[in-house]
Amino acid sequence: MSTRLGMMLGLLLALPVGAWWLVATRVALGGGGATAPLAAQALFVLSAARPMLVSMVGLRTAALGGFQDGARTALPMVLAAWPLLALAWLASTASLSRVLAVEAALLLHALLVALLGHGLRHALRDLRWTVPLATILGIALAAGAWLLAGLWRPALGG
């Protein structure tokens, strides 16, 4: 169930980003505009939105079900965007090594979030406190990802 949840959430995140990118590219092709900046923006949005989603959902799932449940939910949220990521990279000027480095960092982040949720579960033991605390911590991590996203934006050509 965790894997399905993570994959569906990942797809629900990738879908609007992909739709926006393709529609914007269609408009640019019709009007003679540049398409590479649009691809760079799509790459950036994917690299910023996924850790936010992973932080909020993965942490809570791990706090409720442990590391394995957390990892099974968090990792598919990252994986689901890979086909879109591949297509957007082909249209961008970003280097492959940097895009792969960002993906590796996102996978590592998903595992760390699951580990953090697992730690919360064992540290608090009381479910009444675990869930709200995991939710608050997840939101804080998501906000941190939002604030820090500008750091890797230049690496993706944005």
Partner: peptide, 23 residues
């Protein structure tokens, strides 16, 4: 894949295959 092969390993393989295939 999510419906019929819900394991994490299968999802990872499918996502990688879909990315490589589309590219």
């Amino acid at each position: 894949g999510t419906i019929f092969l819900p394991s994490l390993a299968a999802q990872a393989v499918l996502a990688a295959a879909a990315a490589i295939g589309a590219g």
